[in-house]
């Protein structure tokens, strides 16, 4: 997370190196469309259509970011989650961004808890997805409004007041950030609204992601399973 120019992450700043990306999706049309949409900061170095292929390709080319569909054929039927667990050894180097048409909370939460750094819907524009890829490559988390909504729903909208349940609740500031993201604000807009730097926003979002991944409260999974629709 030690990046020299964190505050200008929204723009393609001085990138010496293009972000190396593997696209994992079982629809060839979607893969080629996505490839065409990604801008010049991004270099697609591999593609895969199934779980097994994905694990093989990712282990071989060791990309910076994997754009990962949540629903994938092959493997043991675990989809995107299985790809992440299959590449657990690379998690320090390779980062995963979940892509999904599924809005089902259980899918999204499962893939995030497996280790994905973010989640975006497939209807997102090429520009937005490029920005998200760059952000994830830099070690930050990417939250779509919907994921922020999931988080708020799962953790509740009351801020944490005691320190010892810190993993199970969001702090007041994190809640504010999540709310603004759910309202459709970009990180920059969140920063402006809360009079904080983009870097601070990113820190908050990363903290929320950590809680989402590490929180041991089983209600989270239960909640996701019950919450079939959003």
């Amino acid at each position: 997370m030690n990046r020299p120019n964190a505050d200008t992450a929204e723009l393609p700043a001085n990138h010496e190196r293009r972000v190396r990306v593997v696209i994992v999706d079982d629809h060839a049309i979607f893969r080629s469309g996505l490839k065409a949409d990604l801008d010049e900061r991004i270099d697609v170095v591999g593609e895969a259509a199934t779980v097994d292929q994905a694990i093989a390709v990712i282990s071989e080319v060791r990309p910076d970011v994997v754009l990962l569909d949540v629903h994938l054929p092959g493997g043991m039927g675990g989809g995107g989650r299985e790809v992440i667990t299959g590449c657990a050894a690379l998690l320090g180097h390779t980062r995963f961004l979940a892509l999904s048409v599924s809005d089902a909370a259980e899918d999204v939460v499962a893939v995030i808890r497996a280790g994905a750094r973010g989640y975006v819907t497939k209807t997102i524009s090429g520009q937005e997805i490029s920005a998200a890829v760059v952000r994830v490559a830099e070690g930050d988390a990417v939250f779509s409004p919907r994921l922020a909504g999931f988080v708020l729903d799962a953790f509740g909208t009351a801020p944490a007041d005691i320190a010892d349940d810190e993993l199970d609740k969001l702090s007041a500031r994190e809640l504010e950030v999540m709310r603004l993201i759910a309202r459709g604000y970009s990180y920059k807009e969140v920063a402006k609204e809360l009079f904080i730097s983009i870097k601070t926003v990113e820190t908050h979002v990363s903290a929320v992601l950590r809680k989402l991944q590490l929180s041991s409260r089983h209600e989270l999974t239960k909640w996701a399973a019950e919450r079939r629709l959003l």
């Binding site: 919907r146 909504g149 729903d153 909208t157 959003l230």
Partner: peptide, 9 residues
């Protein structure tokens, strides 16, 4: 026009 709805609670 796309209208994205996120609901909590």
């Amino acid at each position: 026009h796309a209208v994205d709805v996120v609901t909590v609670g």
